[in-house]
Design a protein around this nucleic acid. Structure first.
Lengths: 215, 215, 215, 215
DNA sequence: CATGAATGAGCGTTCATTCAT
DNA sequence: GATGAATGAACGCTCATTCAT
């Protein structure tokens, strides 16, 4: 990417990013038309290829750009919270809020994950993997694993939890798009799923709760 | 699709289906090249368009064709087995076996699910939804829900189970490709995940087991 | 053309001729589709190319076929009628009647006249020229040229007459298509045009008419 | 049409127009090959479709372009000349001169008139009809109809005159193509035809001439 | 005699990218 | 720096014709 792109007026830069993401999401990498992008962004063909050396360069830039937005999610993780379920609730909802604010960014990420074009698949995969790993590393820092039953396989339990969260966000994806804000309804909905797993994962879950209540 | 395609020698028919699936998986609907397909299938351009009236027709045929393979999975469901976990184990492994035997078919299905091309998205979506629904309906027939704890939300618990199975197959997808056969290793692996959920879902899970032992 | 075509059942032969003419009229020689022709005629591709060695052969056959119909017009010329105007009226209306009965044949002739395809233009032109010449030769046999004013250039006057007849049929072409029969209305209409020219061409035209009136 | 085409160097623009007209005349709308056009015009395929959004757009542009040339004919009409025959002579010869200078333009117009392709027939027909009407309207402005015999049907007489002129130009079409200039030979030739009709149309034609001579 | 599967050149059109202005 | 005209390879698809059945 040419540094000229950085020196652009913020407005024009955003128009280009949005137009490009939209087109890539709508048609995939190969079928996305640079003509459509420049038309939607209101710039000339020459300008686009002045900022980015080619279509691939533009695509990979967008992945990096997306990265920044995603980082915000992980930075929002409260490392002080030792209860994994509580922490995940927070991070999950941070993610959902961002998904609401930058729906395009998440759509783009999804489309990148399923991009078949050999030209970009490998590179995109590596970028996304690096992103995810750095995120996951933070995710489990300082988690209090002693809350888990001794008999449970913590790794596998965590995997189930992850798959459940992904399934949950996928399921509520459309609802999210129409909500103005991620409200307590969704939180409660999630707590239902979380309770099912927590019950299985945590030591003396009901007893302790009862004990709390007895005081 | 022209019935001429049905009357083709099985070998040629398979070559065409394989070449087309491969190309669609590798490049997506729009970017897939009919030139590449005919070259790989060893037929002429004219022949392809003799069998299928156009690219879209070919694509939709492949979805239907895939359907048949998938139906085999659901037909393998043992409706006599009332324990959902046991039943799911069976179907899951039936699915995996097919995935091993027809890896291309499953890759194609996945790529169809993420196909952005407006031209086929809607139709493909409807076909796949119909497929899935008919499958899901059979999935839960005669399940003994009384095994579940009264306090558990059975619907949500089932969702978690589904998401976990999907996550599991995704995770072992690559491993599966190299395995010669879906062996007991994988079964044991899955039982670990299943145990975690079963513990949460089923009534008196440990007690009953103890009770069994006491006799 | 293969003689097999002659041995065909009259019905099938007609279907082929009609389907072919229709398609050639609608799209011109080059763009006419043999696929459309065989579909409309209800025969197989192979049959068409069994009867005619190729598209061009079929086209040229249709011109010859048309010729036969046209000959009927010229054969209807009453060589006993020495008055050119009267004779032309008769032949003109014979032509119109045929045009009504075989509208397709005339549409085809017109389209052949304007066919740009190098492949058939020359040959078609020659055929049509031969047709027309043999027709014109008969047209003027035994005409009583002494009716014309001595001062008039008979050749040029005849040309004007021809152009006028052609313009007239073109003008009433559409009307003809809807008429059930070429009625006396059209005849009267034509007589108006004829009168204008006759007045200029024939000797003592007005005087004689005056003379008639004086009696 | 893209305005880029207007900004082209006149030479290149002409090459494109000529190549396209030639190809359309030679093969008709549907069979005309854009490959041939670009090759003859010495431009790239991409350029042609940069100037014109598609083949149809190019074709319709050529009709409009032709229009301009034709307008010149009608603008050459001397509205001061009240004698229809004299006026027609002038316009006819203006037309012939243009036909000589832009033979391709007239060939193209003729081919458009007989174009069977549904895709362009209607639109082309409307354009040409509008052209012709505006031309015909001017043709008869200020004509001194009192020169005509009272007994003559002026409308029909005018039709005959038109058909004669059309026939005449058609007849001399080939000759015109070889002439360097429309010379007096042709004018005299036409006067012969005109005289035949004039004699029929105008009052006291010979007498008045005699009268003129007597003064 | 009749069929229709098979062919591959050719069609109109789109595309990312270059570069003179 | 910004523009958009120019390119030609590649696209999906059609075609008249052949020939094994």
């Amino acid at each position: 990417m040419n540094e000229a792109f950085f020196n652009l007026q913020s407005d024009k830069r955003k128009r280009i990013i949005n137009a490009a993401m939209q087109e890539f999401v709508a048609n995939g990498y190969t079928s996305a038309s640079t003509n459509t992008i420049v038309k939607d962004a209101g710039i000339s063909k020459g300008s686009l290829f002045h900022y980015f050396s080619n279509k691939k360069d533009l695509y990979l830039f967008l992945i990096d750009h997306t990265n920044i937005v995603i980082q915000d999610v992980y930075e929002a993780i409260d490392l002080e919270e030792p209860d994994l379920f509580k922490r995940l609730s927070k991070i999950g909802f941070a993610k959902m809020k961002i998904q609401q604010q930058y729906p395009q960014t998440f759509d783009f990420l999804t489309s990148v994950l399923n991009e078949p074009a050999e030209d970009v698949r490998q590179f995109a995969g590596e970028k996304l993997a690096a992103m995810q790993e750095s995120g996951f590393n933070q995710l489990y820092v300082n988690v209090d694993w002693s809350l888990f039953k001794d008999t449970i396989n913590v790794e596998k339990a965590t995997e189930i939890l992850n798959w459940t969260m992904m399934g949950f966000s996928e399921k509520y994806r459309n609802k999210l798009a129409t909500f103005k804000d991620v409200g307590p309804e969704l939180l409660e909905e999630w707590e239902d799923y979380a309770a099912i797993l927590k019950n299985s994962y945590y030591k003396d879950h009901s007893q302790r709760r009862n004990g709390d209540e007895s005081h």
